[in-house]
Design a binder for these strands. Structure first.
Lengths: 217, 217
DNA sequence: ACCGGCGCTGAGAGTCCCCTGAGAGCGCCT
DNA sequence: AGGCGCTCTCAGGGGACTCTCAGCGCCGGT
């Protein structure tokens, strides 16, 4: 297993290198944001340990850039910032886990193992299809760049349609996932698709008669 | 998104139920280990929030049992134990993340989203035979690359013919699988095969007199 | 070549699927 | 209290889809 450690502080980087090597990992170290980003892009690592405070480019920017480029290597962020919003931001930018300094090395190892045993096929944090963009973290929806203002229920329906795109989503699926009961009256789904069409544009949601709905062309 | 909360303490369970529901999750609650295990097994949830201290069976045992049975639903453990070894144990038993009480709800949400991001829904296989391609997920049918527009019943008939290809499918089989009643008038099958031939090309569905139909050569 | 029966097809009626406008109930904010 | 936004139900209408029916063609056996 190859692990990339991005950490500028010499002592910490060295400690991690030794500790992980002793556990059988092959470790490489990068000392600033840009070189860490580059190594993560092309280095073929199985996981990345990423400090937040880095020279040149913050860890947040590194992980966001990676995800935007379609690089899905598991990322474990490590930071001295322990504010709850720092942590939530790191995760929403696409990190898979977040540890606060000081941390226990035992816990670090366990979290690394947990990341490595998951299938490395995460989806982007932001859903995007057919000219529609939806951010689950900020609850923001844009259509061809313009902001759309959605009610909570409308947001949920759209979220499921986007997550499934380009597949067709059955009304029963939406009922069970959004309303929690597949045996409800399907008409409520039709009504909400109607609301969404009014706000996003009629052609953005396609009806597949007898099957369900689908995003865009 | 459907989330299972396994938590015996009434106040905490209720707080989680409300908070998650407000974020648009469909929430179910189990109050002890065994019933939580059962719900996680068969409930079809997208994620599980699992307390460690539970009546009947500990959270550790629950997650270990699930993994041993091949159930890979994302599990976020929540515990009042903050010992580093407790956390490492939880993760090594198969939990995907571990939070220590008291925790910030904002962080819980971000971690939940990070987990849900990780496993894309499995897509049913694409059926292909005799120059015809049928994708059950997108409901798309192409003939030699050109798109064909099928009604729901037509789609179902074609799906069964393709799934069986190159075998011959009896009219009675189609009646029972598509119409749900083998004793119906077989003429309706002939009519629908006629519709399909008109849309896909006459020679694409072959008649085997006295036996049924088969997809092209 | 003839005949019986299996399969094919055009037309039409009925069904049901989906869309929409109106409005009631509810909670929240002013 | 009043207004507002959100959710959901209801009923009507339009149109796609389904199915039946009846007549005809064609295959295979004698």
């Amino acid at each position: 297993m190859r692990v990339l450690v991005v950490e500028d502080e010499r002592g910490m980087a060295e400690a991690l290198r030794r500790g992980l090597a002793a556990e059988g990992f092959v470790v490489e170290v990068a000392r600033d944001g840009p070189s860490g980003l580059d190594a993560a892009r092309f280095g073929g690592f199985d996981a990345v340990l990423l400090d937040v405070m880095l020279p040149g480019m913050s860890g947040y920017t590194v992980v966001r850039t990676l995800r935007a480029e379609g690089v899905w290597v598991p990322v474990l962020m490590v930071s001295a910032k322990d504010g709850e919003y720092d942590e939530a931001d790191g995760l929403d930018y696409g990190a898979d886990d977040y540890l606060t300094k000081p941390f226990s090395f035992v816990v670090l190892l366990a979290r690394l193992r947990a990341l490595l045993r998951r299938d490395p096929a995460p989806r982007p944090a932001v859903l995007q299809a057919g000219g529609i963009r939806l951010d689950p973290a900020t609850r923001e929806v844009t259509v061809d760049g313009g902001r759309a203002d959605l009610a909570p229920r409308e947001f949920l329906v759209l979220q499921h349609l986007l997550a499934a795109a380009p597949a067709v989503v059955a009304k029963e699926t939406l009922l069970s996932q959004v309303w929690g009961d597949a045996s409800d009256d399907p008409n409520v789904v039709e009504v909400y698709v109607g609301y969404l069409r009014r706000k996003l544009g009629r052609e953005r949601i396609e009806t597949v008669r007898g099957a369900g709905y689908r995003i865009g062309p």
